[in-house]
Design a protein around this nucleic acid. Sequence first.
DNA 1: GATGAATGAGGGTTCATTCAT
DNA 2: AATGAATGAACCCTCATTCAT
Lengths: 201, 201, 201, 201
Amino acid sequence: MSQSSKKNSDKHRRIIQAALKVFARNGFYNSKVSEIARAAKVADGTIYLYFQNKDDILISLFEEEMAAILQKVRLAMSDYDDPVEKLKQFALNHLRLVEEHKELAEIIQVEIRQSSKFMKEYKVIQFGEYLNLISDIVKEGQGKGVFRQDVKPGIFKRAFFGALDEMSRYWVLSPVKKYSIETAATEISSYFLDGVLLVRN
Amino acid sequence: MSQSSKKNSDKHRRIIQAALKVFARNGFYNSKVSEIARAAKVADGTIYLYFQNKDDILISLFEEEMAAILQKVRLAMSDYDDPVEKLKQFALNHLRLVEEHKELAEIIQVEIRQSSKFMKEYKVIQFGEYLNLISDIVKEGQGKGVFRQDVKPGIFKRAFFGALDEMSRYWVLSPVKKYSIETAATEISSYFLDGVLLVRN
Amino acid sequence: MSQSSKKNSDKHRRIIQAALKVFARNGFYNSKVSEIARAAKVADGTIYLYFQNKDDILISLFEEEMAAILQKVRLAMSDYDDPVEKLKQFALNHLRLVEEHKELAEIIQVEIRQSSKFMKEYKVIQFGEYLNLISDIVKEGQGKGVFRQDVKPGIFKRAFFGALDEMSRYWVLSPVKKYSIETAATEISSYFLDGVLLVRN
Amino acid sequence: MSQSSKKNSDKHRRIIQAALKVFARNGFYNSKVSEIARAAKVADGTIYLYFQNKDDILISLFEEEMAAILQKVRLAMSDYDDPVEKLKQFALNHLRLVEEHKELAEIIQVEIRQSSKFMKEYKVIQFGEYLNLISDIVKEGQGKGVFRQDVKPGIFKRAFFGALDEMSRYWVLSPVKKYSIETAATEISSYFLDGVLLVRN
DNA sequence: GATGAATGAGGGTTCATTCAT
DNA sequence: AATGAATGAACCCTCATTCAT
C-alpha cells in the first residue's frame, strides 16, 4: 500500500541482482553475504532488512526471477494453437531464456537442487508450474488426437525438460558452444516428436 | 604381493561409504568431516591419512563409485547387438542403478554439479565416458541404418541422459514413486525411438 | 577530522596491550588468539578486524611499541652533547626502558628473534635504527677526536647493544636482581669506554 | 654399563643430529617430530624410545652439544696463562665455534631462549658454566693485578658474552659477513680490555 | 531505514603421542 | 627394539547475523 513497502524499494532489487551475479560466480556456499552487500552497494546489515537470512536471498531470487520467466514463456506460447508447434516453441524459448539469463540458469542448475533438498521449509512451486506447461501441451495434443494416447504426461514433462536442461547445463558450464540454440531446439523437439528410428516399431 | 597398500586398507573403503551416507543426507557443505569420521568409526585425523581434504573425499567417492558403475553398465549392455535394444537397456539399467545406488545418485545430482564448477582442478572424465556410451549407440545405429542419419549424437546423448536424469531426480528427491522403473524406462525409450506423434511429420 | 579510523579505535590498542601481556607470559606459540581476545575483552573475531592473523599481532606489537621506544631514547639523548655522556646515557636509558617495559622486553628477547627468522616478509627496520643510534655516537666521538679512530662502528654498535641486551635478558628471565640498573649501566659503559685493564696495552 | 644403553645407540645420535638440522632450518615450533624422524631415518615412534617428548629432544640436543663445546673451549684456553690472552682467545674461540657449529648456534640464538623460559623443569646448567669461564678469567686477572679490581665479574661475563653473541646473531641470521672472525674478535676484545677512549677518564 | 563494527559459534586440519604388531 | 598407522585434542580463522548508533 505505502510507497515504502519493502518490495518497492530498489534495494531489494539491487540485492537480488547482486546475489544473482555473486551466486552464479561462486556458488551459494562459497558466496559471502558481505560480498553480495558490496556488489549491491548496501551495508551488510541492510541485507537483513530485506531478507531473513542467506538462504532466503537464494529462495527469493529464484522465485521472483522464475515468476518473470514463467510469465514470459506463457506469453510466448500463447501465439500458437498447434500443440506440435507449441512444443517446438517451448524448447526454443527455454533455451533462449537460458542464454539470456545465464546467471540465473547457472544458479538453478547447481544451487536450487541443493536447496530444494536441504532448505526444509522451501517448496519449489514455481518450478512445478513450469514443468506443467509441458504436460499441458501433451494433454492438449492428446485431446486433439495429435499425440499418442499412451504417452504419460507426468513422465513426458520430466523427460522433455530434462533433455533441454542437460543441454543447457552443457552450455552454461562449458565455454564454447558447438551447436546453435536453434539447432539444439529443433533436434530435441524432433526426438520427442518423431523419434530417431527410420522405420517405427 | 602384500595387502598393505593404503587402498587395500578397509579404512579407505569405510570412509568412502560413510561419506556416501553423510553427504547424501546432509549435502556436502552441511556435512562435517568429524561426522564422516564417526560414521566410518575412525578418528578425525585418520580421514587425512587417506584423503587430502574434504573436497578430495567427494571427488574420490565420485570417481571410484563411478568407475564401478561404468563397468557395470558396459557389462550389462554387452549382451545386446541391436542398437534399439541397447538404448532400451541403457535406460533401464541407468534407472535401476540409480535405484540401487540411491545415495550416490543423490550426491551426483546435487553435489557433483557444484564441484565440477567450483573445484577447478577436477575434471569429470568418468562422466564424459558415461555419456559417450549413449552416443556410441547412436553412431552404431546410424551405421547399421536403423537410426536417422541426421541425428546429432552429441546432442542426442545429452538429451537422452537428461531425460533419464531428470526422472531420477524426481525419484531421488521425492519420497513416493508414481511410476515403476520399467514403465519410466520404456516410456522414455519410446519417446526417443518412436516420438510421440501419432502421424509423423 | 573524525576519530573513527581503525587505528584510532581503542580496540586496536587494547588488543596490542593484551597481546603484550599474553605473549610475555606464555610465548608466542603457546599463546592462543582466544586468550588475547579474552584479555582484551573483545570477541575472537574482533581480533581479525584489526590484524591479519596471529603473526601480524606480534609484528604490529613490536613495530608500534618499538617506534615509541625509539622516540623516547632519541629524546632522552638529545640533552647531551658529549659522546661519552651520550653513550653512558644510552646504556642507562636502555636498561631503564627494559625495566619499564618488561613485557615488551621479554617478547623482543625471545619472540622477535624467532620471527625475524621465520616470518619471511618481515623486516626489522626499527631495530636497525635503534642500533644505529649507537654507531652514530661512535662516529660523532671519532669526529670530535674523543674515540679511537680504529674503532669500527658497525662492530661496536652490536657489541655494545649485545652487552646491554644480555644483561637485560638476565633480568627479564631471572626473578631477582643482584645489581641495580645504575650499577649495571655504569659498569658496562666503563668497560667500553675505559676497558678493564689497569695498564693499557 | 651394558653396551645397549640408550646413549650408546647410534639412533640417539642420529636423532640429535637430525633435530639439529631441522630445528635450525624451521625453528622448534615449526618443526614436526615426523620431519626429524625422516631426517634421522627412523620411524616416528622410535623417537619416543630415546626422548620423552619433543621438548626433550631440544633440551638433550642443547645439553649434549653444549657439553662438547664446553670441553673444547676449556681445552683451547688451557694453553694460555695470561688472562689478557685468555680473554682474547675466548672471543676468538667462541666466534669460531659459532662458525663451525652454525646450526647449533642458530638454535641457541632463537630456541633455547624460548625454552629456558617456557620449559619449566629445565635449568640451563651448561650455559651457566660457559659464562663462568669468562668470570673466571676476570677473577684470575684481578688476582694477578692485571684487571681493575672494581670490575664486577658477574656483570662482565654477561656483557662480554652478550657482545660476542650479538655479533654471532648478526652472522647467523644475515647471509653476508662484512667482517672476518678474527677482526671481530680482536675488535671486541680491545673494547673490553682497552676501552674506546683515546684518553682515559 | 541504513550502517558496519562487533560478535562468537563452528569446523577443517594439524601433529605430538600412543600402541598393536 | 622398531615401526608407522591411528588417534583426538587443540586452535586459528571465517562469516552469518546482530545491534548500537
